[in-house]
Design a protein around this nucleic acid. Sequence first.
DNA 1: AATAGACTCAACCGCAGTAAT
DNA 2: CATTACTGCGGTTGAGTCTAT
Length: 349
Amino acid sequence: MGRAPCCDDISELKKGPWTPEEDELLVSYIQKHGLGSWRALPKAAGLNRCGKSCRLRWTNYLRPDIKRGCFTEEEEDMIIKLHSVLGNKWSRIAAHLPGRTDNEIKNYWNTHLRKKLLQMGIDPVTHKPRNDLNLLANLSQLLSTTQNLGPMMNPWDINNALRIQPNAAAEVAKLQVLQNIFQILNTNNPSLSSSSSLSLPNMDQTMALNLGSSYSNGMVNINNISNPMCSTSQGFCHAPNFAVGPSHQQPIVDHKYDTNTPELYNSSLDTNNCNKSLSSTTTYETLDENKLPSLVNISPEVSTVNQIESNTNSTNGFSALGPTTDGFFEGWDKLLDDGNSDFWKQFIN
DNA sequence: AATAGACTCAACCGCAGTAAT
DNA sequence: CATTACTGCGGTTGAGTCTAT
């Protein structure tokens, strides 16, 4: 004989969305009696709900320490980085993001971050560049985006990139375009892989930082590229979206509760518009010759997670871990200086 | 104004590991 | 040791909302 059943008669228990009255019952009961047996809670609190449903409601929504509202760029970085190491271990990822629930992170990944990575030609599962045919769609998209961002004298001129910050995104976009091209070339023509004449320049830590990006483990986050066209104080970005997301961005507003029972939600319920550009996080990896190494740190999971944990407390969220490569862009100078440079310049512009 | 499609996210479902009997 | 509930987790669903036509 085992334990008593979880719920006496599950068929008569209410399911579906919680009402403000039910929330109040649950919150006031837990405030009085604390957390105990979820099985006994519904009856004691006067709720016609399964204990499992109560637990879910509490942990995912009513808990006072839950941080609601927009994810910050640092949180996005952290999620992407942790996901590259842990995969869909949402609870473990959530453990590194105080106030965020696994459910919330899972939803945010599926609705925002996953799409971002896909649009940038990065497989959200492996965190490696995609090499399937869908890549071609991304190429045309990136090319048009690049063109919309305006002409530059020399797109690979680091001085231009530094001088004209708004073009930094275009710089990175072009790098991505060429990375994709080289990937296709390498995929379809193995002989190119062994040739040293076609190599992407390393975008090293110095450049990444100079571009105003957060950079870690060879990954660049263009979220942090400053853009005078993007007014974060107003929450609207008038610059072209770097990647393509949904045509709209819904404000994070709890339609059910923000006006009905605000007293229940003493956590930082964000009723402001969250119109920051949905699609500006992009990761790039340091390119090594023709290889397209993984975004994933190949060191053991534990040490990587520990690294992230230790970096969480740093001022910018991440420390610069990428390798420094002297003479970056040397390869491109060579490439652009040779007889084919006109082709490339025309192609890029 | 109506409507179809897209998007978001709270909530549910089912599985696996753990604990109690 | 076997059985069964409890708990936590990840995948999935569907109602509500927004946008485009």
